[in-house]
Computed example of a mutant assay.
Amino acid sequence: MTEEFKLRIFTEPQQGATYDDLLRVARTAESAGYDAFFRSDHYLRMGDASGLPGPTDAWLTLAGLARETSRLRLGTLMSAATFRLPGPLAISVAQVDQMSGGRVELGLGSGWYEEEHTAYGIPFPPLRERFDWYSEQLEIVTGMWATPSGSTFDHEGTHYRISDSPALPKPVQRPRPPVLIGGAGKKRTPELAARFADEFNLPFTDEDTARAQFERVDAACREVGRDPAEIVRSAALVLCVGRNESELARRAEAIGRDVDELRANGLAGTPSEVVDKIGRWRRSTGITRAYLQVLDLTDPDHIELVASEVAGSLD
């Protein structure tokens, strides 16, 4: 059976948003019928945004939303392995999964934004070492969740050593919450995806690049004896939709982007244009989920428009 295509809302609150802003967007997304609400995991603004009133922590936010929504899937694109120790991360995600009744997904990456690390005193080793941290964190988090209750978990790694951990609490979802991996690395990233990913996500790229990377993930799966079809394919693209050119231009201006550039690189245009582009992505890359990067969190009509005139037209 072919998986139903899903649209997910993806926010970037480090650009400037309070918890209440995110709650309004999540509730709008839930009432409009979207599948999920995801957020980035960053502590510092990017570009010219003010970032005011300051960052919100991803997993604290998702814990709150877990209690204030009822249906939406909730997750991160992507939490950084540099931000949290793997044992406490496994605890946090499992707890939020319990708080949500089993609606959490963990997107985990190696971390890349050096400035936010220096701004908040977070160690930022070279890429090779960050990737080593990342690989061990995936082993530890998934290993703790998989450890039967009453048993203990041990890990003897280069960067983390764990002995006699009760590996508690357990998430509601069994065998575990879905794990998302993504990125354009040509060797280690596909290898980690083959070992740990339930979903592979490619952010803000073109169809040809995405297709090539998905093929690398498939090859890595076959190399370890895993069916590539077990991994969901998804993409994240900036969203800017208007009923007409005037509305489209207004929304592009609100996020400081050019309409032509957005049409080329994102999901932008009229609803029918966006439906057509999603269709091309689906045929070309095999994605079954699209993460719609919503940059203006003060425009609920944008989210509702896409739900009514794009989602309803996807076959």
Rank of each mutant, 00 (worst) to 15 (best):
G121T: 06
A184I: 08
Q173S: 08
F214S: 11
Q213G: 02
E114G: 03
I255Q: 08
G225Q: 13
G157K: 08
L202I: 13
H117R: 11
W145C: 01
R103G: 00
G183F: 06
V93F: 00
F153A: 09
E68P: 03
A212N: 07
D41H: 09
A36P: 00
T18C: 03
S31G: 11
E114K: 13
L77W: 10
C221V: 04
E304C: 02
G33Q: 06
D260L: 12
V141R: 01
G101S: 10
A254C: 14
E129N: 05
D258F: 08
K6V: 10
E12H: 11
T56N: 15
F200Q: 09
R211D: 12
D132F: 01
H42S: 04
D208P: 02
T76V: 08
R233E: 06
T205G: 11
R233M: 02
I9R: 04
I140P: 02
E4P: 13
A36I: 02
K186A: 15
G279H: 05
K170V: 00
E223F: 04
D258Y: 05
V232I: 07
V238A: 11
M99H: 05
Y34M: 06
E273A: 04
M46A: 07
P123C: 09
A268E: 01
H159A: 02
P300A: 03
A307W: 07
R84W: 13
P13E: 06
R27A: 14
R24S: 15
R195G: 04
A235F: 00
G269K: 04
L202D: 03
H42W: 02
